[in-house]
């Protein structure tokens, strides 16, 4: 136990640096996936096939490819096409795109759950589509999509560890490097696990609160 604490003291500063990158990566990917997911959802719900067909295709392709492979593609294949991304950039863009497909389906479910009569009532007041979306659809759809959004945040935090495979210096990667040079696997990965848990607890609490505040009765 004493050995564990002593090692922990040595390793923690490095691992905490990894935590900072993990948080940055998670927040960046969350923001990107939210924006893209919302865009896909709007396109998918559009009556114009010119918009809905590409959205369905994008969502299907993204969902059908493992996140790890998508990250490899971002980091190792794009340079061949003349696009150079840093490991962090490739990680957050890759995770953001990968998650945008799930976010899109989530947003779509929320928007489709709104009673069509609501849209007609708004239209009959003379509201234009953007105003109908902002004033009537989104405030009601948010009740449906916020609870799963909370879960998405937690999954995103954990899946950010996949970025270690393309050398992003986040928490898991930090752990791997220390473990490889010290062979203290037990100490290192116990710490890594505890740190992920510590970061996910506030999110779990937030997700629970969201569910309570917005969940359907």
């Amino acid at each position: 136990m004493q050995a564990f604490l002593r090692d922990a003291q040595d390793f923690l500063p490095i691992l905490l640096k990894g935590c900072v990158v993990t948080v940055e990566l998670t927040l960046g990917a969350l923001l990107l996936s939210t924006l893209l997911g919302f865009l896909w959802a709007l396109m998918r719900l559009s009556p114009t096939r010119l918009l809905s067909t590409p959205a369905v295709t994008i969502i299907t392709v993204i969902r059908g490819i493992p996140i790890l492979v998508q990250l490899f593609y971002m980091y190792f294949v794009l340079p061949d096409l003349g696009i150079q991304l840093s490991a962090f950039q490739a990680g957050f863009i890759g995770l953001g795109i990968a998650y945008s497909a799930y976010q899109a389906e989530n947003f779509r479910a929320g928007i489709e759950a709104v009673d069509p009569g609501q849209i007609e009532a708004a239209q009959s007041l003379g509201m234009r589509p953007a105003l109908v979306m902002r004033r009537v659809i989104l405030p009601q759809a948010i009740r449906v999509f916020l609870p799963p959004y909370g879960n998405t945040m937690i999954m995103m935090l954990k899946d950010s560890s996949i970025a270690s495979a393309i050398t992003v210096a986040e928490l898991t990667r930090g752990g791997q490097l220390i473990a490889a040079s010290t062979f203290k696997n037990m100490t290192v990965f116990t710490l890594v696990a505890l740190l992920y848990l510590a970061m996910s607890l506030p999110l779990t609490y937030l997700a629970h609160r969201l569910e309570r505040a917005f969940g359907r009765k």
């Binding site: 009673d115 009569g117 007609e120 009532a121 239209q123 003379g126």
Partner: peptide, 15 residues
Amino acid sequence: IRSEVGMVFQRFNLF
């Protein structure tokens, strides 16, 4: 035009 013609629905459709 819709803003000049009111509509009342069977199921109210209040927000």
